[in-house]
Amino acid sequence: MPLTVKICGLSTPETLDAALVAGADMVGFVFFPPSPRHVSLDVAEKLGRQVKKAVKVALSVDADDALLANSIEALRPQILQLHGKESVARIRDIKQKFGLPVMKAIAVETAADLAALPGYAAVCDRILFDAKAPKDATRPGGLGAVFDWHLLEGLDLKLPFMVSGGLNEENVAEAVRITRAGGVDISSGVESAPGIKDPDMIRNFIRAARATEELAT
Rank of each mutant, 00 (worst) to 15 (best):
residue 2 P to V: 14
residue 5 V to L: 06
residue 6 K to H: 04
residue 7 I to A: 03
residue 8 C to V: 12
residue 10 L to E: 01
residue 10 L to A: 01
residue 12 T to I: 00
residue 16 L to G: 08
residue 17 D to H: 15
residue 19 A to E: 09
residue 20 L to E: 11
residue 20 L to T: 08
residue 20 L to C: 05
residue 21 V to S: 09
residue 22 A to H: 12
residue 23 G to S: 08
residue 26 M to Y: 15
residue 27 V to C: 10
residue 31 F to T: 12
residue 32 F to K: 08
residue 35 S to H: 11
residue 36 P to Q: 12
residue 40 S to R: 15
residue 40 S to W: 08
residue 44 A to P: 09
residue 44 A to K: 12
residue 44 A to D: 10
residue 50 Q to N: 12
residue 51 V to M: 12
residue 52 K to Q: 12
residue 52 K to F: 01
residue 54 A to Q: 05
residue 55 V to I: 15
residue 56 K to I: 13
residue 58 A to W: 13
residue 59 L to K: 04
residue 64 D to M: 08
residue 65 D to C: 02
residue 65 D to H: 09
residue 65 D to S: 09
residue 67 L to R: 15
residue 67 L to Q: 14
residue 69 A to G: 06
residue 72 I to T: 01
residue 72 I to M: 09
residue 73 E to V: 00
residue 76 R to L: 06
residue 77 P to T: 11
residue 77 P to V: 10
residue 78 Q to L: 04
residue 81 Q to K: 05
residue 82 L to S: 05
residue 83 H to Y: 11
residue 85 K to S: 13
residue 86 E to G: 09
residue 86 E to V: 04
residue 87 S to P: 10
residue 89 A to D: 13
residue 90 R to M: 04
residue 92 R to C: 01
residue 94 I to Q: 04
residue 94 I to C: 01
residue 95 K to C: 00
residue 95 K to V: 01
residue 100 L to Y: 03
residue 102 V to G: 08
residue 104 K to M: 10
residue 105 A to N: 04
residue 109 E to C: 02
residue 110 T to G: 10
residue 110 T to S: 15
residue 111 A to F: 00
residue 112 A to I: 02
residue 113 D to H: 13
residue 113 D to R: 12
residue 119 G to K: 11
residue 121 A to Y: 08
residue 123 V to W: 01
residue 124 C to E: 04
residue 125 D to W: 09
residue 125 D to A: 07
residue 126 R to I: 08
residue 126 R to G: 00
residue 128 L to C: 02
residue 128 L to Y: 07
residue 129 F to N: 06
residue 129 F to M: 03
residue 133 A to P: 00
residue 135 K to S: 15
residue 137 A to E: 05
residue 140 P to I: 04
residue 140 P to R: 06
residue 142 G to E: 10
residue 145 A to T: 07
residue 146 V to M: 11
residue 146 V to S: 14
residue 147 F to I: 10
residue 148 D to S: 11
residue 148 D to V: 11
residue 152 L to V: 03
residue 152 L to H: 10
residue 152 L to W: 12
residue 153 E to G: 05
residue 154 G to A: 11
residue 160 P to D: 04
residue 161 F to P: 03
residue 165 G to T: 03
residue 167 L to R: 10
residue 167 L to S: 11
residue 169 E to N: 09
residue 172 V to N: 07
residue 172 V to D: 06
residue 174 E to K: 12
residue 174 E to T: 14
residue 174 E to Q: 15
residue 177 R to F: 07
residue 179 T to F: 04
residue 180 R to V: 00
residue 182 G to D: 13
residue 182 G to I: 15
residue 183 G to I: 06
residue 185 D to W: 08
residue 185 D to M: 13
residue 187 S to C: 11
residue 188 S to Q: 09
residue 189 G to A: 03
residue 190 V to L: 06
residue 191 E to K: 03
residue 195 G to F: 06
residue 197 K to D: 00
residue 197 K to Y: 03
residue 200 D to A: 13
residue 202 I to H: 01
residue 203 R to P: 05
residue 203 R to M: 06
residue 206 I to T: 01
residue 206 I to Y: 06
residue 207 R to E: 11
residue 207 R to Y: 14
residue 208 A to F: 14
residue 210 R to N: 12
residue 212 T to K: 02
residue 213 E to P: 00
residue 215 L to Q: 15
residue 216 A to L: 13
